[in-house]
Amino acid sequence: MAPVTRFVLIETSHAGNVGATARALKVMGFDDLVLVRPRWPDVLQRPEAIERASGAVDVLQRARVVSTLDEALDGMTHVCATAMTPRDFGPPTRPPRGHFEALVARGLPQGVAFLFGPERYGMSNADVWRSHVCLRIPTAPDYGSLNLAAAVQLIAYEWRQTIGGWEASDRVSPPQTALLASQRLADAQAVAGLLSHWAQALTAVGYLDPAAPKKLMPRLQQLLNRAQPTEAEVHILRGVARAMLETAARAKR
């Protein structure tokens, strides 16, 4: 059985692009669409979205609008940003096909999320840093501008081909139905909570200066993304943070 696949649109400006994205997803057999802070709160019901969906209105009806990326990533264990411009810091930049083949080789994640930024300026650095990889679609060197829905279609196609077309259940080992916490990977929301806890603890012991944090927390984010901690390991690390806070509080008495 293929992993849970989610497509996340961040601060989308044009309702028509949301409808076209729904159509692109349905063509490839996906229907998990989440919008983070779109320009129009009622974007899923706007005429432009329904018209561009062209038969994929059911995908729009299932879609959700949320206020934070954390909410959108609930349950996801592998996060893929999309950006045409390489970043000087953050996750590695890779072509979709090569990265997907590597995922299959080492075992598919439980949940995969694909993030797409605003049409005008793309993903923010902060959102890219949340990701395990930055996917860059190979394009002509002198012109790499892609419409949002076109980019979604390309990623959805490559991912569908990777997980086995319409026979994914026959080609991928079925997941265990009752994994222990020591075996289940922590989702993106759990990792974000851990980082927030550690930021408090590191500040309390004087290691992190909130006024000049530099890139300590994004670097810790990337470390955790590479490590892919389990739920049990996240609980252990949060226990360490809790002990640091308690020790710092006692030292001030």
Rank of each mutant, 00 (worst) to 15 (best):
M1K: 02
M1E: 01
A2P: 15
P3T: 04
P3L: 05
I10Y: 02
H14Q: 05
A20Q: 04
R23Q: 12
L25H: 01
K26L: 09
L33Y: 07
L33S: 13
V34W: 00
V34C: 07
R37H: 10
R39P: 01
W40G: 04
D42S: 08
L44F: 11
Q45G: 14
R52I: 10
S54M: 07
A56G: 11
V57D: 14
R62H: 13
A63W: 10
V65N: 09
S67T: 06
D70H: 02
D70R: 00
E71Y: 07
A72H: 08
V79L: 13
T82S: 12
P86E: 08
P91G: 11
R94V: 15
R94A: 14
P96A: 14
G98D: 14
F100M: 11
V104M: 08
G107C: 10
L108M: 15
L108C: 13
F114E: 05
Y121D: 15
M123Q: 14
V128M: 04
R130G: 12
S131P: 14
P138A: 15
Y143M: 07
G144R: 10
A150M: 05
V152S: 03
Q153N: 00
R160A: 01
G164K: 03
E167S: 11
S169R: 15
Q176L: 11
L185R: 13
D187H: 12
A188H: 03
A190W: 06
H197E: 05
H197C: 06
W198H: 00
A201D: 09
G206Y: 14
L208G: 15
L220C: 01
L220D: 01
Q222D: 04
A227Q: 05
A232R: 09
A232D: 09
V234T: 03
V234H: 02
H235E: 11
L237G: 09
R238V: 02
A243P: 06
M244G: 12
A248R: 08
A248K: 09
A249Y: 11
R250F: 06
R250G: 00
A251T: 08
A251F: 00
